[in-house]
């Protein structure tokens, strides 16, 4: 790790800590009430879901329409684990960690099981088959009534996801995804997006990296689902339908496929916007879908394209501008 990168990490760590402290202060001052806190938690869950889908769709280039299925698998595994551990006397945080790890492992395994056959297909066919698998997961959960409560929903999940732990889990997920996408493995993953045949020709094990990327994306979707379950304390298979997958995909597309920071900003906007438009609730989804179509026609690469937002980048741009102004003054 060179000095510039180290500097970047330290700056970002400070920014994250400042955001955390800022929100904490606002919560204790009562500016952020329970309703706003809930929205913030949903923003962070959406960030986890969107950044993980971005790994599969943006970086790996495999369009998937079944992300809600992995989220559902994680949510149910995590909820069932936590219910089993509820009366064991363990502290809440430990229960949360154990159930989230269980969720991540199971979702990643589901991801591998689906990925190995599905990733042989490309483009539209992959989108369709992931759609099919996502719906299958939901139907299976709906029918395992003894374990999941079926269509009546699963109740009695301990409400152990708080602002603090959701915040740090989100930060950790983003860090892992950032490190992954900027590593040797990450470059292999991006090379598959750019040109799969060329990547294979230069010796990238395409199948391995496709399944790896897919499994990691699925695992983190499971974590997002787990947090969702522990915040809402109630699960219903209907939540994880095809529309949920589409919502996550829309966040990724709006932010820019291949930009983690883009997904973060888009998740913030697309979680707040529907809430802010609640008073026009009839027209809310209408505007939302209209904006999506407009976005695709006029700026299909999303807000950020494949670029990442960085403080260093802003500073560099500022310096460039300043130098340009100086040069002009001299001349």
């Amino acid at each position: 790790m060179n000095r510039k990168m180290l500097k970047n990490y330290i700056i970002n760590l400070i920014v994250v800590a400042l955001i955390y402290a800022g929100i904490k202060v606002l919560i204790s001052a009562g500016v952020i009430n329970r309703y706003y806190e809930g929205i913030i938690i949903f923003i962070m869950i959406n960030i986890i879901l969107a950044t993980s889908l971005n790994l599969a769709t943006g970086f790996l280039g495999q369009l998937t329409l079944g992300h809600a299925g992995f989220m559902a698998a994680g949510a149910y595994v995590s909820a069932i684990t936590a219910i089993a551990l509820k009366n064991s006397g363990m502290p809440n945080l430990l229960i949360l960690i154990i159930s989230l790890i269980a969720a991540a492992i199971v979702s990643a395994l589901v991801g591998i099981a689906i990925g190995i056959p599905a990733l042989r297909l490309r483009g539209d066919y992959l989108a369709i088959i992931t759609l099919g698998f996502g719906e299958m997961i939901r139907v299976i959960i709906n029918n395992l009534r003894g374990l999941t409560g079926g269509a009546q929903g699963l109740t009695g999940i301990p409400r152990i996801a708080t602002f603090d732990n959701v915040f740090w889990v989100t930060a950790l997920v983003i860090l892992v995804l950032y490190r992954l996408t900027h590593s040797r493995q990450g470059r292999a993953i991006v090379s598959i997006r750019e040109d799969e045949i060329a990547a294979e020709a230069v010796g990238v094990k395409t199948t391995y990296f496709k399944v790896l990327g897919f499994a990691i994306a699925a695992g983190f979707a499971g974590v997002g689902g787990g947090l969702y379950a522990h915040y809402l304390a109630f699960l219903d298979p209907k939540i994880f339908g095809f529309m949920r997958s589409v919502e996550i995909l829309v966040i990724v597309v709006l932010g820019g496929m291949g930009s983690l920071t883009g997904s973060i900003f888009a998740a913030i906007i697309l979680t707040i916007l529907p809430e802010a438009l609640r008073s026009f609730s009839d027209y809310r989804m209408l505007l939302y879908s209209f904006a999506l179509v407009l976005m695709m026609i006029f700026r299909p690469i999303g807000m950020f394209g494949t670029k990442e937002f960085s403080w260093q980048g802003i500073y560099d741009r500022y310096k460039m501008l300043r130098d340009a102004v100086k040069r002009r003054e001299k001349a």
Binding site: T57, L63, G123, D124, A127, V246, L249, V250, V253, M257, D282, Y283, M285, L286, Y288, S289, F290, L292, V293, M296, I297, P300
Partner: peptide
């Protein structure tokens, strides 16, 4: 979007589907 990447077209179609559904809902 005829010359745009396929994924943009697909997402437009999804957006159009949502739009018509919600138009009917309104």
């Amino acid at each position: 979007l005829r010359n745009a990447p396929r994924i943009s077209l697909l997402i437009t179609a999804i957006g159009m589907s949502l739009f018509l559904q919600n138009l009917a809902l309104v």
